[in-house]
Design a protein around this nucleic acid. Structure first.
Lengths: 205, 205
DNA sequence: GTCTATACTGCGATAGAC
DNA sequence: GTCTATCGCAGTATAGAC
């Protein structure tokens, strides 16, 4: 809803600048906590000028959430039914953790939205997201039935991958506060830990 | 900071009613998204009357966060160095998951705060929380060194317990959207899954 | 101690000049 | 297509009657 006007090159460029600024602000302060003024300042535009490209604050937010959904789900889409099971799952974990490291703002944007009850994307969750998870959970269940992966609840396996990888983006301040300033790259440690965790969990003896 | 006035019974009762209402509203909308009007309505008081008990919106929020911190850390405090290692960890997971089930609003209150950079409790995280985790991570490391628990990064083990258990409170709408309406109690399924996960992760052969 | 009324601020959005 | 100016509203907090 409320797509931005974007036909000329200048317009496309400004829409992209605004999106970048809005991602920065929304991911830090949440929807209500963010102000259009802040986003405009971050984007280097005046407030009315910004509202020329997007009709409202809500429109910017919606635009971000929907366009980012694809990026967010790509790692799961890439889970390949014809691959080697354990390696496929571990590769998924790696891709997801890499996404948390490289795009923590996107992760926090979603986290803010979902913690508050997903008012803007509830529909997407029970359609697009559910369909994809249904499909991939079936693949994983197939591997388990074939004895190629240790048995476990496939849906909760996927939830645990989301939870553990996104934790290092969403709760970054807490992780750093607990580990102390000496640990420069918590996500690298996390990668090693998660590799061990899911191998022990899923490897067939 | 800014403790509420609470000497008489009526005052104590109202402070408690306000806290309950504020928890409901802050956990749903975050700090900025919540309004004093909403909290007052939820508490059945007029706005000025509410602001007689707490000097400001921020004071209510601080009061909630600091008083709830103890409840939140209790399960980890109860991890007993003289107990049987695997059983102690599993019991911790169970207590934490039970807390997510019974007090999802508290979990979301913290999640909102930390996702947005923990502006109000950063200090607490790097002192009280860090000290407790340091202590318990040492206990776990001791168990691993003694060969009573499979080796793994103790800090990230604790992070993974937080992450996995709180996920079912903080991301409840997403979990339910994906599982569909037929699953009435995702947390019960999660309990079984997590039992398996941490047993396979930590059991010594 | 609790209410009504209100001061004051900051925000989202629009009007209209250029 | 971008600006200045401003409207209208919602929000926090306070003054002062009862």
């Amino acid at each position: 809803m409320d797509k931005p006007v974007a036909t000329t090159r200048i317009q496309k460029r400004n829409v992209s600048i605004i999106s970048e600024a809005a991602l920065e602000v929304f991911s830090t302060y949440g929807f209500r906590g963010a102000t259009v003024d802040q986003i405009a300042r971050e984007a280097g535009l005046s407030k009315p000028n910004l509202l020329y490209y997007f009709p409202s604050k809500e429109a910017i937010h919606s635009h971000l959430l929907t366009t980012l959904m694809d990026v967010w789900l790509a790692p799961l889409r890439d889970l390949d039914a014809s691959g080697e099971p354990l390696e496929e799952v571990l590769a998924y974990v790696r891709r997801k953790l890499e996404l948390s490291r490289q795009r923590p703002r996107e992760s926090r944007l979603f986290a803010n939205e979902i913690v508050q009850g997903a008012p803007h994307i509830l529909e997407l969750l029970s359609t697009e997201l559910k369909d994809l998870v249904d499909e991939k959970a079936a693949v994983i269940a197939g591997w388990m039935d074939a004895g190629r992966l240790a048995k476990a609840h496939p849906y909760h396996l996927i939830f645990s991958i989301w939870s553990l990888t996104q934790h290092y983006a969403d709760f970054d301040v807490q992780v750093r506060a607990v580990l102390g300033p000496k640990v420069k790259d918590p996500t690298r440690e996390a990668g090693e830990y998660l590799e061990v965790l899911f191998t022990r969990m899923l490897k067939v003896d």
